[in-house]
Amino acid sequence: MSEKKTKRRDFLFTATTAVGAVGAAAVVWPMIDQMNPDASVKALASTEVDVSSLTPGNTLTVLWRGKPVFIRRRTQEEIDEARKVKMEDLIHPEKDEDRAKNPEWLVMLGVCTHLGCVPLNDKGDYNGWFCPCHGSHYDTSGRIRKGPAPWNMEVPKYEFVNANTIKIG
């Protein structure tokens, strides 16, 4: 009899504690989620860029989600140089064909994959980009070739809305 009573009491206390803990956890979530991107930030997730004035050999830098995006209209030499590189020479092997569907246009996040600085245009040992912060060298396809960065510069989702307009995001 008394054993039964103890068990029931244990169940009551366990249930109370468990239900209380679930509630406490449910209250914590809004406090965490409020720091995630809000509805107005999410709504700005895409941007359209007019590239009609960009001539070969030049780069346009635009802001997308608060980060610079490099839009480079590459010259034929740059394309050739990027395409002839052997995969085994790359730190992060990716084909240039996959990075630039339309070989003339290279669109990528202008953010060094090491610690987030913005690399400099037309600099470095591989005629591409060079990050001044810690000396990462990128080639004409924006791939990491030398230095501490682990990956190639990221290619965002983008599309040509028409011949002159790129929609990023």
Binding site: L12, T16, V19
Partner: peptide
């Protein structure tokens, strides 16, 4: 509803 359930549980725990 959650608060009422928990209140009832706590009430009986308190009585115990």
């Amino acid at each position: 509803v959650y608060l009422i359930i928990l209140t009832v549980l706590v009430y009986f725990s308190m009585k115990r």
